[in-house]
Design a protein around this nucleic acid. Sequence first.
DNA 1: TTGAAAGCGGTACCAG
DNA 2: CTGGTACCGCTTTCAA
Lengths: 346, 346
Amino acid sequence: MKSESITIKDIARALNMSVSTVSRALKGSYKISEATQQKVKDYAATHNYHPNLMAQSLKNKKSRSIGLMIGSVPNNFFAEVISGIESIAYDKNYHVIITQSLESKEREINNLEHLTWRSVDGFLVSVSAETTDISQLEKLHSNGIPIVFFDRIVNTMKTHKVVADNVGGAYELTKHLIENGFKKIAQITSPLELSITKERMEGYLKALAEFNIPVNDDYIKYCPHGGMIKEEIENAIEELLSLPDPPDALFTASDRITIGSLAILYKKNIRIPGDIAVGGFSNFSSPELFNPSLTTIRQPAFEMGKKAAELLIQLIESRRPVTSFENVILPTELQVRQSTVKLPVQ
Amino acid sequence: MKSESITIKDIARALNMSVSTVSRALKGSYKISEATQQKVKDYAATHNYHPNLMAQSLKNKKSRSIGLMIGSVPNNFFAEVISGIESIAYDKNYHVIITQSLESKEREINNLEHLTWRSVDGFLVSVSAETTDISQLEKLHSNGIPIVFFDRIVNTMKTHKVVADNVGGAYELTKHLIENGFKKIAQITSPLELSITKERMEGYLKALAEFNIPVNDDYIKYCPHGGMIKEEIENAIEELLSLPDPPDALFTASDRITIGSLAILYKKNIRIPGDIAVGGFSNFSSPELFNPSLTTIRQPAFEMGKKAAELLIQLIESRRPVTSFENVILPTELQVRQSTVKLPVQ
DNA sequence: TTGAAAGCGGTACCAG
DNA sequence: CTGGTACCGCTTTCAA
């Protein structure tokens, strides 16, 4: 009943040659006469031959699959990344096995194991907010398994990395806030262990320094779970607002924290930017529709996924061990909207 | 250098038994003595044995993968669906190969082919807005390959289907609009060929009929590409607004159309709900943050993904041919917000 | 330039 | 209850 798919053996039988010849002809091996090659390829094409990938995998010890580890799929940033990865993987005939850490280090470790014995050919990873122990990743890496980091990278590991210009983006936004008259700029961010946290902090501090604004540690709040838990954002905002000298602007350092903060401020009936200006990293699709329209720093998520996938596949398919690694930094884009621009006097 | 993964043969050698015995012991086959089983399982566990999936696949002619066909990943509805599918697939040890139609029928056909010769064990599909020709799906189906439809289904095919209560959702929203004083309710929707379009239309018409409001065909606009092309939404809105008797409310029948319409109305400086009320289907994460906050009908996307994946895997693993199919309808949820509630007199 | 055959890691049939 | 072995579809070495 199933549509019979034809095998290399069928072709050999039909064309009266050996399977090895057919196999070689299909790969365009140079040791096969043009004539034979053409005959085989024609037959394959007209009979809609496709190699059995499981057989190839078994033989070649390559699954042609790559493991992806991200925070969560329903997050615009990661969704765009996936889209970029898929576009490359599709072309190069790989498939992508997605796993979500949901910012939990236990899940992350589980997922890595799962992917390992699914025998993926390589890993694409953005570490979770909770990640402290990277020994598992290091073990994989020292076993020679290709890994490419993107977004939240692990700096100590020697491999390709693809990130957005987090320092630049944070700097631009902070500078923009300062130039618009905000001097008391708070930041709500992820754990300081994360690469993106450090980098975004660096940009923030750089802008403050440039304008001679002293750093107020009370204005910097960390969310241990990267905002996965609503309360951590809520607490951060409570604390900021109840300071004797509360901030007049808020820089939210991740997509989840940005949206979470807005929702909380909205619920508290706090006016933006009247009571406090808000701007942050976000790949939300339509930040202009917010109330007020939201100033964001967008990351080139799709591009990031593409580039990371390209580099990984390149690693996987490289004949000789790769020793020099790229550190790709993609530009971010500051989009200024109402949430960070002082309204005319009311 | 690679971390040596142990095979069934290694276990056999170490334990001085045949590979067949080991294989059977690992599967807990009843023809093996408890003692042997225990010995094998212990050895496997302590030596971290995992079956080689490619070998298993080759032998069993099952890839343990399922093909997913959706509109696009960076779309909150589909992203949530994926998350639900993954949660089930992960548990049952399947992996999901994602393909995006981007609402193009050419891409859809390509993707189906691609998935076919990737030898997925079954398909999870939500057809594209452009889909007119389902012969390929029918061929797969008649070849005995399991398919489960979700969201945008194909009614003529006998298989499991998982959808939201589109009729009910559309009815609720339309009724809500009417009860809030809106009588001239326009609808912007996807092509009428789509199941979801028909169903949402049905709910809309049902509510109008119930309140004795005559149907005005000028108020119903279709987007041939489901809103993938911005102009089609823009044109629809232009036409609606330039009618001699323009509508006072807008029912947007899909996620993409909802967001697209808002963006356009926003750009045109049209007040919501003052000039026109807006409500529609959307799984946007924070519709309360919009300006104004947006009335939506939410679909249980995560649940839909879970249910569809469960049904598909059940089909795949069923010993005997399945002849009776489920038609799962999951409840939608109307969330009323400012965009459809008349403001106090201004 | 082509063919024969071993083998990748399991599974399952047939013997015993 | 256990062992021997053919085979899934393809790649690749060795021989011709």
